[in-house]
Design a binder for these strands. Structure first.
Lengths: 157, 157
DNA sequence: ATGATTATGTGATATTGTATCCTTCGTAAT
DNA sequence: ATTACGAAGGATACAATATCACATAATCAT
């Protein structure tokens, strides 16, 4: 089904099964199990594409499992995914989105359209360094930068 | 008068009554009224010092008013304050904190200690420009950057 | 098998945030 | 004065988000 092509790209943007495989690899590298439940939660997040609430994810997983999956089960798995960089939490939207390169450690920047809700994910090393150095100058040990920008996407301007 | 100013830089950090006066001025400049209720909500936020939940603020205001003030009343006023830059919302903590220079428009950076919860507020023009230009490069019209860093403050490291 | 550990189920509860409708009060037009 | 009107706030209900406590099930090492 997937064309199993070779990447010649340092940062290939995985999608579909390929993405799931990368997520599995990243999670297992963290010493965690890739269970059926976790696979389905990840698939749900990935299929939603944009940042989604834990409750929406729970609904979708409930459908794919054929029985009700409670939000707290989803939260547990979401926490695990966030801790292992498979998923990012978008703080200003109380939502979760699949990381397009699971396991890779970045300070991502999310650009969130206040009109249509679509969210773009950007990496910018210079910006990231700038944030961390600003923190360091204040004597603060940065662990998890939260870099989000609310505004209007290209289509909605 | 407060006698505690240790440093003075271009941005005077107002505290106490001085801060309230600045907040009042900023709100009125926005064409809004500075009512007793609003003054008490602002005083509550300012006295808490660190980012606080709307419910905690409601509790404090309830005490200062001598009767129960419902959270939704506080939310209304908080929204007004945020819109007029008297208060900032800390997204990663679902909390609100008084702006130390009300009415001034900045892209603030919050440094939030995951250990003790205290939050430091920093402005950094270079960082702010960098964020906005990163957004612009992606065709995104930045309106409200959310710049927060979770980590450990100087005392908790 | 036995027990230890990890994963998930289940129900209750806590926290955070909105919607709606109503009263009060100041003020301006009649 | 009476009426009309809008802004502010009160009261209640509710919705959305998140966590806790404990039970059960699956997995793994002895």
């Amino acid at each position: 089904m997937q064309a199993m092509g070779k990447h010649d790209h340092s940062h290939h943007e995985a999608t579909g099964e390929e993405l799931a495989a990368a997520a599995q690899a990243a999670l297992e590298k963290g010493g965690e199990q890739w269970t059926e439940m976790r696979a389905q939660v990840f698939a749900a997040i990935a299929s939603l594409g944009q940042p989604s609430s834990a409750y929406d994810i729970a609904d979708l997983v409930s459908k794919s499992r054929g029985r009700r999956v409670a939000p707290n089960s989803v939260y547990r798995i979401l926490d695990l995914f966030v801790a292992n960089n498979l998923v990012s939490r978008v703080e200003s939207a109380n939502a979760f989105v699949a990381n397009s390169h699971p396991g890779c450690l970045h300070d991502c920047v999310f650009l969130i359209c206040d009109d249509c809700g679509t969210t773009k994910h950007v990496d910018d090393d210079a910006l990231s360094k700038s944030v961390r150095s600003t923190a360091a100058k204040a004597g603060f040990a940065a662990q998890r930068p939260v870099l989000e920008v609310r505004g209007l996407c290209e289509d909605c301007q």
